[in-house]
């Protein structure tokens, strides 16, 4: 139902590293699950509109003023402190090019 190449492609889209063994296992398991999902082809949905949100409350945009709230340096510090790599209060990342 799903080829090894497709599994590798999807893993790349998901930014998910998988070992060779995991790819094989994933291929078998996803195949079975996707086969089961075929069941969804049965019901006639030609006249049906999709539910977005949970379908309970009316779908409307909730607006608010775009106001920047200043957080205390302690809170900011607590948040940036959790970055695995940082410099001068900024998140540090590897070079995007190369």
């Amino acid at each position: 139902m799903i080829s090894k190449k497709e599994v590798e492609h999807v893993a790349k889209l998901a930014r998910l590293g998988l070992s060779e063994k995991e790819i094989e296992k994933m291929q078998a398991e996803l195949g079975l699950i996707l086969d089961y999902f075929e069941l969804l082809k049965e019901p006639d949905i030609s006249q049906v509109s999709p539910t977005f949100g949970a379908g309970i409350a009316p779908l409307e945009n909730i607006m608010r003023e775009d106001i920047v709230k200043k957080e205390s340096p302690q809170t900011v510090g607590k948040i940036t402190a959790q970055a695995p790599a940082k410099e001068k209060g900024h998140f540090k990342v590897k070079g995007v090019f190369g």
Partner: peptide
């Protein structure tokens, strides 16, 4: 990061959803 950090079921669901 994601290979080492996520468990099997989470990986499976990320794959299914991405697909």
């Amino acid at each position: 990061t994601r290979e080492e950090g996520f468990g099997d079921e989470v990986k499976r669901r990320i794959m299914l959803g991405t697909y």
